[in-house]
Design a protein around this nucleic acid. Structure first.
Length: 276
DNA sequence: TCCATCACCTGAGCGC
DNA sequence: TGCGCTCAGGTGATGG
């Protein structure tokens, strides 16, 4: 389930292959993703050269001459680089799109089809003005992401601090796993109303979010069920979880059993002793 | 404006 | 072994 670290690991794995290379052909086998893949997607991209691959939140932005194609991995999406030989690997059931380059194939697989592949032409403005990107919060590694920002943006809000972190309108890229992990590192109980968390504790949380995401990127992301990086290898960050998916197991710090609750129809894990 | 809930989707895991 | 149920979760849409 790709969150920001998995998307960033994917971007880093893909960019050396695709940057500066020309898309020879695009095979769209499934248009019915979260939003329909544009009908003319293949013809629009054919013979175009990819300039670079950037990331905004959990969106991957592939810049070509006259626009960007945008990829969101959703819950189960992966982008893999495969060799383009005389007999390339046959697409499997959930392999929806191939970008075929001269020496390799970039293949999008997404069993649950929560992902998206979209097109944003340059004459429609900068890609960051795309409706899906324009309302996103700040990047967690940007200097604008501070405890003061979180503190200011949550005054008067009754929603829990965990749900405020997940919402994506303050800071992007923190999904369910890393929200639980970051709150543990900051010592903040996930159920605390966002509007009642002090500035000092938001400073801790901002530091914890950055540290958690950076550690996950270093380890190649997490591998829960479906995620593998662009080379098909698994990440290892799940071995370092303090609380996520550890209900009933002893806290790695104090030994108290980890609790699991549901917030906003999502599982939350926390240590009732370390997080107050 | 804020918040909760729903919908989308399929595979894994579990009980029977 | 096979069937049916529940759960997992990112995020836009909807309604209170």
């Amino acid at each position: 389930m790709p969150e920001l670290p998995e998307v960033e690991v994917t971007r880093r794995g893909i960019e050396p292959y695709v940057a500066g290379r020309r898309v020879e052909r695009v095979d769209v086998r499934t248009r019915a993703l979260r939003w329909p893949v544009p009908a003319d997607f293949a013809s629009t991209l054919g013979k175009k050269r990819v300039r670079k691959v950037e990331r905004r939140g959990k969106y991957l932005l592939f810049e070509i001459e006259d626009g960007w194609f945008i990829v969101h991995l959703g819950m189960t999406g992966t982008l893999r680089v495969l060799p383009h030989t005389a007999e390339p690997p046959a697409p499997a059931k959930h392999d929806h799109i191939d970008w075929i380059f001269d020496e390799f194939i970039l293949r999008f697989r997404d069993p649950r089809r929560f992902g998206a592949v979209l097109w944003h032409p340059r004459d429609a403005g900068d890609v960051l003005d795309h409706p899906l990107l324009a309302t996103l919060g700040v990047e967690p590694f940007a200097p604008e992401f501070t405890g003061a920002l979180m503190h200011r943006r949550t005054r008067g809000r009754k929603v829990s601090v965990k749900q405020a972190l997940l919402a994506g309108d303050i800071v992007v890229g923190v999904g369910n796993i890393y929200a639980s992990e970051s709150l543990f590192r900051a010592g903040i109980r996930p159920t605390t109303p966002a509007g009642r968390v002090s500035l000092a504790r938001y400073d801790l949380l901002a530091t914890a979010v950055r540290a958690t995401l950076a550690a996950a990127i270093d380890k190649g992301g997490s591998t829960l069920r479906d995620f593998v990086g662009s080379n098909g290898e698994s990440g290892y960050f799940q071995l370092d979880y303090f609380v996520y998916d550890r209900a009933g197991l002893p806290c790695r710090v104090c030994g108290t059993p980890i609790k699991q609750i549901v917030q906003g129809q999502r599982s939350t894990y926390f240590c009732p002793h370390c997080q107050r």
